[in-house]
Simulated assay, not measured.
Amino acid sequence: MYLTRQEELMLDGEYGWACQVCMQILVKLGELYGATRLIPISSAHISGVSYKTVGDAAIEFLMEIAEKGAKTKAFSTLNPSSIDPCLIDRFPRKLVEKQAEILQLYERIGAVPSLSCTPYYEYVPAKNSNLAWAESSAVVYANSILGAWTNREGAPSALASAIIGKTPNYGVHKPENREPSIMIDVLFQPRNEVEYGALGYYIGEVIRDKIPIVKGIRGASLDELKQFGAALASSGMTSMFHYGKEAKSNERLEAVAVEEREIKTVIEKLSSSKLEPDMIFIGCPHCSLQEIRRLASLVEGKKLKNGIEFWVCVSRYVKNKGKKPVRIIENSGAKVLTDTCAVVTWTDKLGIKRIATNSVKAAHYLPTMNKAEVLLIPMEKCVEIAYE
């Protein structure tokens, strides 16, 4: 892989240990995937923020690079942490302090504490810009909806790119690697966000790392496409999909037809609970302004049942923009949380064993990461069972 003179000096340690380690990560990654050079990025989005998922090893590494003077060169945002401010008193002090330490270290190196899996609502990347984003749902959204280009970075490579300001030019950074390699023909019309998510999940299982062109989802909203892409990335390894006007028949591609029965099977498979939930969880990925307005219209004037929690996870940006719908939701008894997500916090420590959600991605992760049974149902059904 070709390196400029400055990049060679970074790799040799002339710019300090932190830059050297980051260059080593990027060079190894580039060599592994056949990159020819490093290219500048307009932003990085860093995962590895939740203490629940990264533990003490991340604190030690972040502390070491911060003490060696590491600073982000590219604009950098952060994925959700483990704790919303209103949850602090519900968890052991040690967990709260460890999470706070991680956030302080990231801020020390220059990352913006957006603490959301949907950074694109506040910071929209320019079309055709190159990014280094971790968080698979955001990667798929950026490539497929926004037309900005990022591979599926891990936490170390996204952090390294943030500090160096560059990423190896492989994968979707090259136009030829964005071409579809399989055609998906959807033979039914998904009716809600759960069915769009289940469709994405089924396709992800079928295609693995191929890039699909999807016929049959031309009328989908951005929120439905977000759920589709998040689920696609949960069950498979693809980084993008094509849809809409691009979804023309191509006889050269392998074609796979998807019928409604496959989607029903996915929903049944991901719904492990038939009992009354302890908690409703909306906001995986974090809700858009349109989603919280929709939820507010459903819960306005209603009262949450006793003995059930209702979490709505959003970014700080969306919560601030949607003060009126947020107030309606909170007046109904639900909690509108920022900085976290049910999947990356300790719901099991709160005694929550059964969670109803409208997110296929959440339904995929909650049984293993939160030891919870899941009921996968649309937002309207969540409201129906949670309110008097």
Rank of each mutant, 00 (worst) to 15 (best):
L199G: 11
K226Q: 05
I213Y: 09
F228P: 02
K215N: 15
F228I: 03
E193G: 08
P212F: 00
I217V: 15
T238W: 02
D185Q: 13
G200D: 06
A231Q: 00
A198I: 03
S181P: 02
G216A: 10
Q227E: 15
Y243L: 03
G216R: 09
S221H: 06
A231M: 03
S181K: 12
S181A: 02
L232F: 08
V206C: 11
V186E: 08
H242L: 13
R191D: 14
L222I: 11
V214R: 02
F228V: 07
E193I: 12
L222Q: 14
S239I: 12
I203Y: 01
S235Y: 05
K215F: 13
I203F: 04
Q227D: 15
S181F: 03
S239A: 14
M183G: 08
L225S: 03
P212R: 00
K226W: 00
S234M: 12
D223L: 03
Q227V: 11
G216H: 03
N192P: 13
G229R: 11
V214Y: 05
S234L: 10
F241M: 08
A230M: 11
I203N: 00
G204A: 04
I211R: 02
G204T: 01
L199T: 11
Y243G: 03
R208L: 12
G204K: 03
A220W: 05
E205K: 10
G219K: 14
I182W: 00
D209Y: 08
L222M: 11
G197A: 08
F228D: 04
G236N: 04
A230Y: 09
D185H: 11
N192D: 15
A233V: 08
V186Y: 04
M240R: 09
L199A: 06
I217H: 07
G219S: 15
K210P: 06
L232H: 02
K215S: 15
L187Q: 14
Y196K: 03
V194T: 10
Y201F: 12
Y201L: 07
Y196N: 04
A231Y: 01
M240E: 03
Q227I: 13
A231W: 06
Y202N: 06
G200N: 00
P190G: 08
V214L: 07
R208Q: 14
K226E: 02
S234C: 14
S234H: 09
I184N: 01
V206L: 10
S221D: 07
E205Y: 01
A230S: 14
L187V: 12
V186P: 06
A198S: 09
D185K: 13
I217Y: 07
A233Y: 12
K210F: 02
S181W: 05
G219M: 12
D209C: 11
I207R: 01
P190Y: 00
F241W: 06
D209H: 08
S235T: 07
L222D: 13
V186Q: 02
Q189C: 14
I207S: 00
I182Y: 00
N192K: 12
Q227T: 13
A220L: 12
K226Y: 04
E193H: 12
Y201N: 08
M237P: 05
L199Y: 10
G219T: 13
I207Y: 00
L225I: 13
K210H: 07
I184F: 04
A220Q: 06
S234A: 15
I182H: 02
A220S: 12
